[in-house]
Design a protein around this nucleic acid. Structure first.
Lengths: 271, 271
DNA sequence: CTAATAGTGTCTATTAGACAGTATGTT
DNA sequence: AACATACTGTCTAATAGACACTATTAG
């Protein structure tokens, strides 16, 4: 059929030539939480944590999953995770970044659903409201070997252990396909989303200022270093760390005292 | 409604609770092409190029666009770009990487279409078949300033100039929203796809071995350096370049002669 | 005083940048 | 011989890693 113009074509367009599908979004929300002090002198231990929701409906009823939901037909793709974040945290101006789009045919038992995963970073201390009852922060422990990723999620009550096998499929960029093993507590392919989000975050920590989205306005360099250390999973040397972040932070005239040791200058992020 | 089990739920699932949408994929295919020799002594000039298709149907009839198409309902997301690549190039084992998913409500005039863009890297010399008539390689010139990206596409007959305004919207990671200006020759939001693909490629060039996907099996270090230089858009110093790629390549006993100057050792990629 | 963190000085090792030089083919 | 590229040596500058040292507080 010949059309006279773009308008003419659009008027006669049959939008059902290809079978349509559903799209969802999943949001991986990262934050840092403080544990207890072991004694009055020590800094309180920091944890790296993600927000999970216990499903109360099928499919995967009673399993944990990332907050998410369907994309509305009249909603920009990026507005869906924003809507979900607003719902979950009631915060605005949250750091949000598209992670990856997962679209295997059988990734959802209901029907063909493609999901675009996002990751968000928040400062947990900014949360005013309590979480809804089926929502919980899980502390993350992450360990990577040559051929596996081990992720340990712990909310104080439940422990979710994930073992993910890395299968090298792109040697020039060191990219892996992930195969989830031993997972009967997490819904869908969300173990994959978590693994790729952590991996992205670790990378970006080194070449961006992304970390400040998880920090309060004022922080000590010791606290900042702690956050780097738990996310990277290794100790850093003080002088080297201070050299590297020196031009990203700004000294304030505030101090943090009361720690049973030398007080520490509070810094803030220098844009 | 209460369900007895996951199976029971799935049997009664109403898949039309949310209005479904269409998905497409667009594939940004990069390659390197050789120009003419200026004189018998010189190396032939290299260009960095992408493959575009001239649309022969509405919408955007007569405009250039990236090869792409609809995702089939029974096709893994990643299989769609593979299918398109196979169609366009008839090559297999092509480097393919998911770029980004574009999902603004009005990005397609026909209806709501979300598109996942992929980028692919090929060695053009491996192409046996001729391109179909409406397909053409465009040489890319890329220039980035603080607030703009200028992309110049040239296939020898037509020239497409793109000006893209960078709007900083995420300061901690230096991420920009792109706004396309002066574009009446490229269909859809494909200028955005091209800009983000080039930017991704430039980055990955520095910390991965991605470049070897665009190289023939045997190459001289001078040729490899040329490819780095055209993609990065700057000259590199020989000794520094050789130091950096030294452990990524392997000397062979082959030589390239006939250049009106000292012959050059042929290397190959060391996995 | 002690335990714990805060913060700095400095030496060394590694890596990156720059430039100059030598080598060797084709015409 | 001349030109263009191939390839290497070496000096210098910048950055990263390591360690030791001083500073300061609550209890």
């Amino acid at each position: 059929m010949e059309y006279k113009s773009e308008e003419d074509f659009l008027k006669h367009y049959n939008s059902n030539e290809f079978e349509k599908l559903s799209m969802t979004t999943d949001v991986l929300i990262f934050s840092v939480s403080s544990g207890e002090k072991e004694n009055y002198r020590k800094l309180n231990e920091k944890y790296f944590s993600i927000l999970l929701v216990k499903r109360d409906t099928y499919p995967f009823k009673e399993k944990w999953c990332l907050p998410g939901g369907f994309i509305n037909i009249d909603e920009d793709l990026e507005d869906a995770p924003k809507r979900i974040l607003k719902n979950e945290t009631n915060l605005k101006d949250i750091y949000l970044e598209q992670l990856y789009t997962f679209g295997d045919v059988n990734r959802d038992p209901r029907m063909r659903i493609v999901s675009t995963a996002y990751m968000a970073l928040i400062d947990k201390d900014k949360l005013n409201d309590d979480l809804s009852t089926n929502t919980s922060w899980f502390n993350v422990e992450y360990k990577e070997t040559k051929s596996n990723i081990f992720i340990n999620l712990n909310n104080g009550i439940e422990i979710i252990n994930l073992k993910i096998k890395k299968i090298l499929y792109e040697k020039t960029t060191d990219r892996y396909k992930y195969a989830v093993e031993d997972n009967n507590l997490l819904a869908f392919d969300h173990a994959l989303v978590i693994a790729s989000g952590i991996s992205r975050l670790k990378n970006k920590l080194e070449y961006t200022d992304i970390v400040f989205n998880m920090m309060p306005e004022y922080f000590t360099l010791g606290e900042l270093q702690q956050v780097y250390e738990i996310i990277l999973g290794k100790k850093l040397l003080d002088p080297a760390f201070r050299r590297i972040i020196a031009n990203k932070v700004e000294k304030t005239d505030k101090m943090k005292t009361g720690g049973g040791h030398r007080p520490s200058v509070l810094f803030k992020y220098k844009h």
